[in-house]
Simulated assay, not measured.
Amino acid sequence: MAASTAPTSQTHPAALPPSVFTLPQTAQLEALYTIIRDKTTSRGDFLFYSDRIIRLLVEESLNHLPVIPKIVETPTGATYEGVGFEGKICGVSILRAGEAMEAGLREVCRSVRIGKILIQRDEETALPKLFYSKLPEDIASRYVLLLDPMLATGGSAMKAVEVLQEQGVPEERIIFINLIAAPEGLKRFCGRFPSLRVITGWIDKCLNEKSYIIPGLGDFGERRCVCCACWYSSSPTADLDIVNEESSRVTSIIALADDCHVAFKSLIRHALRQLAAFFLAEHLAKQLSL
């Protein structure tokens, strides 16, 4: 008996900008999004299934990079006329949620350079403000995959693009990757940067009066961050993944601390390592039923 095709909840605005590309709308993709949208989904499952979507997005983004002819010799002694990527790439994550997409990028692109941008809302002006950036020195000569899982109003993403342009990155060399986008944010973002391509997994219905994406999936960063979770997954393997991810997160924050004033480095490092030790101790105590 043929499998039935579930109706998709994907939204396709009539005036969708031509620079926006979505993943192929399959039943499998719909199922993955259903899992991560469910508020009862465990943190371990949220990590696993959102990472699957992130890898799909990264793979799709590579399809939009230019290639050049390349001839290689196979083990049989024959030649094969194929293609190779033109130029180098790098990833840039918009902290903090964008950092969760770095692992998916590294799994697809080995040894890829990754930069970071931290943008927060200015309390006085209510506008996005750059608080921190650490980018490869040669970023102006690379194709940039900009990483942020959610596109709501587009304010942070537009500020991040401005930061990249200030470093000499042409607009057409930037590809913005996200899991869920609101139509309002897409139109605003693409209207500002028409030559920049956007790769999104799903376009939701709208923004509500608080500028939250509807139906959305909640706060992506909080659902992944162990600091905001009061429970662990029942799977020991998933728990170890959680500890490994938090250890990586602490290492990343320590790297940010390297740019702080020398007088504060030691204090920051000590506090962060104590925090990492607490996460590990809590995990071990749970496994040993202490």
Rank of each mutant, 00 (worst) to 15 (best):
P24L: 00
F279H: 15
P69G: 08
I89T: 15
L23S: 03
S289D: 13
F85S: 10
G115S: 06
I253T: 13
A27T: 13
A157M: 15
G185N: 03
N63V: 00
L130Y: 01
K265Q: 11
P75L: 05
I119W: 05
E246T: 06
E60C: 04
S211T: 06
S211L: 12
T125N: 10
L147P: 11
L127W: 04
M1Y: 07
P183S: 06
L151S: 11
L240G: 02
F46V: 02
A2H: 04
P18T: 08
A160L: 00
G216A: 10
K116N: 09
P215G: 11
L186R: 07
E245L: 09
D204Q: 01
D45S: 09
A181E: 03
E245Y: 05
T237D: 12
I175Y: 06
D204T: 09
L256M: 14
P75I: 13
P66R: 11
Y80Q: 08
P215S: 00
G82T: 14
L147V: 08
I180W: 08
G44D: 04
L288T: 15
S42F: 01
N63R: 15
I35R: 09
R37V: 01
D259G: 15
E86M: 08
T34D: 14
L147Y: 00
Q274Y: 02
P215D: 09
T200F: 02
V226D: 01
N178P: 00
L23Q: 10
R113M: 11
D148P: 00
L95P: 07
A140D: 09
G84H: 05
T74R: 15
C230M: 13
E246C: 04
K88Y: 03
R269M: 00
C230N: 14
E81Y: 08
C228V: 13
I180C: 12
G44S: 11
P136G: 01
F220L: 06
D38P: 00
T5I: 15
R43V: 10
A2T: 04
L275P: 03
F193G: 06
S211M: 11
S248D: 12
I139W: 02
I180G: 02
A271K: 12
E166W: 03
G155Q: 14
T251R: 11
K205G: 02
L105K: 12
A181S: 15
